[in-house]
């Protein structure tokens, strides 16, 4: 099994290396004529007004948190699904209880308007 992961490692390195090499190659081939005019940030032809890194609304963070919680929940369920043949009905119901409790969370988030994007 370790050899499989070695192959995956090679594959990932090549996958990341290929676009990197292509970009570096293109960087060598491409013309380089930098000018201050060219390197201005795009903002409808005028200089950027104010700081770029503006503060974002909390909604994004909230969505991120809800996502994180459901992500963890689902990941927990994967080994449960793989071991399904060796689980009794009781164990299956426990898994469903797990889902049920988190569905409660989804309903709460819904009622509190966490998904209203306004």
């Amino acid at each position: 099994m370790t050899i499989s992961w070695l192959y995956i490692g090679i594959f990932l390195v090549v996958s990341l290396g290929l676009p990197a090499v292509a970009i570096i190659l293109a960087g060598i081939l491409a013309p380089k004529k930098p000018s201050p005019e060219k390197s201005i940030i795009y903002e409808c032809g005028v200089d950027t007004h104010g700081e770029t890194w503006v503060q974002f609304k909390a909604q994004y963070y909230l969505i991120g948190l809800v996502f994180l919680i459901f992500d963890i929940e689902t990941v927990f369920l994967y080994p449960w699904a793989v071991a399904f043949d060796r689980l009794g009905l009781f164990a299956v119901l426990e898994g469903l209880l797990f889902i049920g409790i988190l569905t409660g969370g989804l309903v709460y988030a819904w009622k509190k308007g966490a998904f209203e994007w306004a």
């Binding site: 909604q59 909230l62 809800v66 919680i69 797990f98 409790i101 988190l102 988030a109 308007g113 966490a114």
Partner: peptide
């Protein structure tokens, strides 16, 4: 763990709101 996740969700939404 599922209760904990639920509590985290409720807390996050409360603070976020």
């Amino acid at each position: 763990a599922s209760i904990l996740l639920l509590a985290a969700l409720v807390g996050a939404i409360y603070i976020g709101r």
